[in-house]
Design a protein around this nucleic acid. Structure first.
Lengths: 112, 112
DNA sequence: GCCATAATACACCAAATGGTGTACTATAGA
DNA sequence: TCTATAGTACACCATTTGGTGTATTATGGC
């Protein structure tokens, strides 16, 4: 039975809350990779990588299809869109971001 | 000693991974509120709300200043900007989303 | 069949989270 | 001062996570 993080967006935000899992997504955003490929240089044990990948899979941020011994991992952007939608819906936040953009454009137009 | 979630953005994404904490932020985005105000109707015990608020505070998503017995909670958008920046940096994702965002901004500017 | 490799499964542990209940601190108001 | 209220602190528990090491499954190449 699953007790915590019942909503899909809970899973999404939680999956993003670890630097190794974000690094995996960054690599997958460039194209499909095997488990060994996305693991390279991250300093994680194979067992721990399996767990990270399961958390990303549970969040529907990646899917996989097996080719022989290899698992080809595929990035799925949909949950990320939903996460971003939640953030964007905070208009007060968005407006403060808009002001910064406006100021940037203003400075740009004055050649600063 | 703190073992997990050392990076600020880890704290941010983790803080967003619970529906009650997101509900608190949604209320605070409308203006400063007391603890009782943001807790109303969420079905959480006072103790648990204290913990949720500490997680949001640790993520720098809220600050507080005390007025008599009341804690005025204040929404801080900066970590949310950083979280959004991380998502945006995934160009593959961003391109698929760009059209929708553009339409959203257009609607916003027309007061819809 | 035999061996190497890709990846997961399982057992184990420390630490953090989600949640409850009770006690405590601080302040407002009568 | 007495009492009610706002909010936190603390103790306690089950579950999950982060992490390690070892075993197992599956496939490919010889």
């Amino acid at each position: 039975m699953v007790y915590y993080r019942e909503q899909p967006i809970d899973q999404t935000f939680f999956a993003l809350a670890h630097p190794v899992r974000r690094a995996v997504l960054e690599r997958l955003a460039e194209g499909d990779r095997t488990v060994a490929d996305v693991s390279a240089g991250l300093g994680e044990s194979p067992s721990q990588m399996t767990k990270h990948l399961q958390i990303l899979e549970r969040a529907a941020l990646l899917t996989r299809h097996k080719v022989g011994r290899f698992h080809q991992l595929h990035f799925e952007p949909k949950p990320l869109e939903d996460a971003m939608d939640w953030i964007i819906r905070h208009r007060q936040f968005w407006e403060s971001k808009f002001d910064a953009l406006e100021a940037y454009l203003h400075d740009l137009s004055e050649g600063k």
